[in-house]
């Protein structure tokens, strides 16, 4: 089974941050069948990680695995577009068929 590695970069605990975290958690729970690894990184606490990943905007979610590497910027308020942006649509549908 495929393993998903996702990193969510946020700047402080703002309402926007909270929205992005809960939206991402929901996607992980529902669409990634629990085989995921989601790390929330606060750039105010770990600016060097933001530098290494060249993060400009927050929130930014980076899908590191499986390839291809994809990024989505924003509060992730539109689930469908997040799935497309992270290139999870095809993967998800294949997984879901297999589960059926």
């Amino acid at each position: 089974m495929k393993r998903f590695v996702l990193k969510l970069y946020v700047a402080g605990r703002t309402p926007r941050t909270e929205r992005a975290i809960s939206a991402m958690q929901a996607i992980c729970e529902k669409d990634l069948a629990s085989v995921y690894d989601l790390a929330v990184i606060d750039v105010l606490e770990r600016p060097q990680l933001a530098e290494d990943e060249k993060i400009l905007a927050t929130p930014t979610v980076v899908k590191e695995l499986p390839p291809p590497l994809r990024r989505v910027v924003g509060d992730l308020s539109d689930r469908e577009r997040v799935l497309v942006g992270l290139d999870l649509v095809r993967t998800v549908s294949v997984e879901q068929k297999r589960n059926r």
């Binding site: 700047a11 060097q48 927050t58 990024r71 989505v72 308020s77």
Partner: peptide, 25 residues
């Protein structure tokens, strides 16, 4: 811009990442 960073924008955002990096530097 990093050519390999394919990016989509979904919803509201700010430049908190950039600001944190500038302040850090």
């Amino acid at each position: 811009p990093e050519p390999s960073h394919e990016m989509t924008i979904v919803g509201d955002y700010d430049f908190g990442g950039l600001l944190a990096r500038i302040e850090h530097a």
